[in-house]
Design a protein around this nucleic acid. Structure first.
Length: 551
RNA sequence: UGGGAUGUAGCCAAGUCGGUAAGGCACCAGACUUUGACUCUGGCAUGCGUAGGUUCGAGUCCUGCCAUCCCAGCCA
């Protein structure tokens, strides 16, 4: 499916605007971690390059040293790579262009298109006017070229304190577009830069550095988000005044919003700082590193970005689509194992004591190529507490007194007795009988049962910590009966993490960190990076769908 | 009340020159089932923000109106 950006590029190709070249870039500011919203942009930019056999650069927009740090550069590079994209030898930094940017500013001054302004930040704001009233021209607007050149040189030389002067474009103080009311091009900041050190004490603004960086890299289509739409005339002004022959074209699209999550850097940082989550890579975070730790695959994220489309209408995508993409990706790829999350012991009273059978089980019945494994079965097993009800409602297919169910890949069992704690009345274990005739694989068809349960042999089971993750936030229509607190005008889900001590089948003892499984009837899980054979930890990536509706 | 943008189903989103509303997610119903999963089948906009107009014919063209979002950083 095409989108409006493809249409623009197709037309440019047809009209030979940039020859047959298509060249995009992903330009993050190194001031935070990448999140799935960035993934949309990354997939878009690198995707366009791939589609048109063009190129896509990675460029750090590092023009504001007070907010940026080299720590973020490494995490951004890692995340882009992990998503599956390759900038080859085209890793750039806006700071690489500082010298050229300075020369271009000199050119603007010489053309009479830029001037040094001595107004304070507060005065500049007042002179700018408002949305409905035009601004006033700065008293410094008509300085001579010579004076401007001298002042700008001395700004660079460090002769003036922070905030004392700026370089401004000379455009139109009465423009209805506030961005055109003599925007600031350079500010003074005696702050070391993470890449240029103490070399500079003046730094270019985004609106000035970005179009020039694009042009210097021969970018053809400069894709950004909607809030820069009003900046496009300025983007074009800079390139026109600097006389770039085939200026890149800025195109804006709507950023990604997702239900049940926050995307703003400020709020994500606040979640980390206020310890609602365990760091930027907490599996509940929409950061790339969080999704990675949760167990999401790059393939599923790319598929998601493909499916949501690209348009200009501000929209909020249902997080269920992301989850669907993950299930779809893992369905045939990962083995399906048995794990009992909330165990209830079952004693099969007519099964010989001390006997163990090793049952042959397909690793993925939809993908026979994944082979088979042996799963031990014995007299005492664990089943899921939720799979037993003493007084079941009508359509309960699972175990209850006197009822028979199938144990997946094993036998039919029938519940004969419920053993309870005398004091508390809590169900401690179940006594069941099995029917040897019903062994899996024998083709028994004497009678049907409605339910099939997963299980784990008690003697062979391996303990594991299982972390059940859920959405960090709730939508308004999900509040009923939910446990939440209001936070930043949203509803923070107090049950976004549940930690269980569970039993998993023995084959899982060898699970390597970051490997994925389907836990039968539960969902997809990923071995946490902290997991060891002595201390297994599984993160739930996403649950399986369920059409079971009690009552 | 200045400027810029956007309105197609619960959520995304296609809709060339005007020719009689793709697809996905979600949801509902049924079939199948050794996962209440998967898969399969069917359902899901006489309707495209709204009111007019042009036309044999309008989501597509014209006019008016309404709603929502963005912009007054020496942030990006």
């Amino acid at each position: 499916m095409g989108n409006f950006i493809h249409a623009i590029i197709d037309k440019d190709l047809k009209d030979n605007v940039y020859g047959n070249r298509v060249h995009t870039r992903f330009p993050p500011e190194p001031n935070g971690y990448l999140h799935i919203g960035h993934a949309k942009s990354i997939c878009l930019n690198f995707g366009i390059a791939a589609k048109y056999k063009g190129l896509c650069n990675l460029r750090f927009d590092d023009t504001n040293p007070v907010k940026e740090d080299t720590e973020y550069i490494e995490s951004i590079k890692r995340d882009v790579k992990w998503l599956g994209f390759d900038w080859e030898d085209r890793l750039f930094y806006a700071s690489d262009y500082f010298e050229q940017l300075y020369e271009f500013a000199v050119k603007l001054i010489k053309k009479g298109k830029a001037y040094v302004c001595d107004l304070s930040a507060e005065e500049i704001r007042q002179y700018r006017g408002t949305l409905t009233e035009p601004g006033k021209e700065s008293p410094y607007r008509n300085r001579s070229v010579e004076e401007n050149l001298d002042l700008f040189r001395r700004m660079r030389a460090g002769e003036f304190p922070d905030g004392s002067r700026v370089l401004r474009a000379k455009i139109d103080m009465s423009s209805p577009n506030i961005n055109m009311r003599d925007p600031v091009l350079y500010r003074i900041a005696h702050v070391p830069h993470h890449r240029t050190g103490d070399k500079w004490c003046i730094y270019p603004m985004y609106d000035y550095a970005h179009p020039i960086s694009d042009a210097l890299e021969n970018i053809t289509h400069s894709i950004c988000t909607l809030e820069f739409e009003d900046h496009r005339p300025l983007y074009e002004w800079v390139l026109r005044e600097l006389e770039f022959p085939t200026p890149p074209k800025q195109i804006e699209f709507a950023r990604l919003e997702l239900t049940n999550t926050v995307m703003s850097k400020r709020k994500l940082r606040k979640l980390v700082e206020e310890k609602y989550v365990d760091g930027w890579d907490d599996p509940r975070m929409p950061t790339i590193s969080g999704l990675r730790r949760r167990g999401y695959t790059p393939e599923s994220i790319r598929d998601f970005c493909e499916r949501i489309g690209v348009a200009k209408r501000i929209s909020k995508v249902d997080v269920a689509l992301l989850e669907h993409c993950l299930r779809e990706d893992l369905k045939l790829k990962e083995p399906r194992m048995m794990a009992v999350l909330r165990p209830l012991k079952v004693v099969i009273t007519n099964y010989p004591e001390g006997q163990v059978e090793y049952l042959e089980v397909e690793n993925n019945q939809e993908n026979p190529e994944m082979g088979k494994r042996l799963v031990p079965f014995s007299r005492e097993i664990y089943i899921e507490r939720d799979d037993f009800m003493e007084n079941p409602p009508k359509k309960f297919f699972r175990l209850s007194p006197g009822k028979e169910v199938r144990l997946k890949n094993a036998y039919y069992i029938k519940c004969e007795e419920v053993v309870k704690d005398e004091k508390t009345g809590e169900i401690i274990e179940l006594h069941c009988t099995y029917d040897p005739e019903t062994k899996s694989g024998t083709g028994f068809s004497g009678r049907k049962v409605k339910g099939t349960l997963h299980w784990v042999s008690a003697a062979h089971a391996v303990k594991a910590t299982v972390r059940l993750y859920d959405h960090l936030f709730l939508e308004e229509d999900q509040l009923e009966g939910a446990d939440y607190i209001e936070w930043e005008g949203m509803y923070l889900n107090k049950n976004s993490l549940e930690v269980l001590e569970s039993y998993v089948e023995p084959a899982l003892a060898e699970a390597k960190p970051e490997s994925r499984f389907q836990f039968l009837r539960h969902g997809y899980f990923c071995t946490d990076i902290s997991s060891t054979p002595d201390n297994l930890v599984f993160n739930r990536i996403v649950s399986l769908k369920s059409s079971y509706k009690p009552e």
